[in-house]
Nucleic acid binder design. Structure first.
Lengths: 210, 210
DNA sequence: TCATTTTCGAACTGTTTGGTTACATAATAT
DNA sequence: ATATTATGTAACCAAACAGTTCGAAAATGA
């Protein structure tokens, strides 16, 4: 956070660029994409109308930037929740609990920019971004499962690929219910039980126990 | 489909009310709620602008009617898919497969009016409807699990409540992925594996096997 | 102090939108 | 035939909207 670049010549900006983007994110989360007008963004971001266009571009561009920033920070936190705990079980509960907490945090509309509003945006670039984000999430989850196999938390015949997809899908379900207004407490409970579910061993293979 | 009511006096309607609603449903599914203009509905429904307001009301009313009709037919089919098969396993795969097929059917935008677009509509009545629909779905799923216990498909200590929620959440995840453009074939595979997952027996109770 | 650079607030413009009205036309029952 | 009901087209209006322009103001370097 050091001011290591030489001050530009003219009048400095009266707003922080990243904070303005966060404000925009809040607006998009609460009103969707098509429901947001430029005036909504102007008032929420605290940036003058002409400055908005000059600095951020039009609504579509602003949404893309907000989406990328949102995905970066949220993805980082989710990855941390998933990779930090040594026990696989704690990783899964942490990941799912984080999904719920992020989707029900006070001070912003419930839901998730990536999983609830972005999928409805009719834009090729947004769609591609979502696709990449989804495959990335599954890949990360698979890695965590593989580490769990190495650590002996789950058997080596654990169906990694299928379960990774299922964890993400369960998180999606929790997030959508958050968007629908379901209270955090209930969702946290369900997150716990979802983690338990996806850790269940595969149907008993009658041949070898180990 | 019998014309059992006496014909009203004047010129008959040139459009079928329910079919016009289905057309409206397609529009809402492909463009969301806020993204739809009255002109979109006018052209898609094949109803003149004044007739549209006279017969259906404004956009909000049209959406509510479309949502209710959509929920009725889709709910009926889902219930049938769930309750018809005698084996619980077939019920679950049927239910989840139906969710995928409905969300990826040709001739309409992928996704689901109830699970993808309605949750973003900022309207108290819509929210209440979604809440009721969600609890109804879970209740139905619980009933099916209880029947499965009676039939001996699952043990009597099967965690019915948790698993019912999880099936619905997994269906939500599949549906959202359909909305994001994931191909039907992959989702059908995942539906199969999801059904397998939620049928797994609870962690071995060391005490009694049965 | 003065010139330079950038931001900011307000106003402006052409377009889109929602909702309504007016009127001529068409199809039915009586 | 006549009354009745509904349709289609077109036009209308006020409000909202996206995007731009303009001049004033602010902060900096010289």
């Amino acid at each position: 956070m050091v001011q290591n670049t030489v001050r530009p010549r003219g009048r400095p900006r009266s707003f922080d660029e990243t904070e303005a983007l966060e404000r925009a994110t809040l607006v998009f989360r609460s009103k969707g994409y098509d429901g947001v007008t430029i005036d909504d963004l102007v008032t929420a971001m605290g940036v003058g109308r002409p400055s908005l266009y000059a600095v951020f571009g039009d609504k579509r561009t602003i949404f893309l930037r907000a989406l990328r920033a949102y995905a970066a920070t949220k993805g980082a936190r989710a990855a941390k929740a998933l990779l930090a705990p040594p026990a696989l079980r704690d990783s899964l509960t942490g990941f799912l609990r984080h999904a719920v907490e992020s989707a029900t945090e006070a001070g912003s509309a419930p839901g998730c920019l990536i999983e609830c509003v972005a999928p409805l945006v009719d834009d090729a670039e947004v769609r591609q971004f979502l696709k990449d984000a989804a495959t990335g999430a599954v890949a990360l989850m698979e890695r965590r499962f593989h580490d769990g196999i190495s650590a002996g938390d789950i058997p080596s015949d654990f169906p990694v690929a299928a379960r990774a997809i299922q964890v993400i899908d369960l998180a999606r379900g929790l997030t959508m219910r958050a968007q629908m207004g379901m209270p955090r407490t209930a969702l946290l409970q369900d997150a716990e039980e979802a983690a338990e579910l996806v850790l269940l061993p595969r149907r008993e293979n009658w041949a070898t126990e180990k």
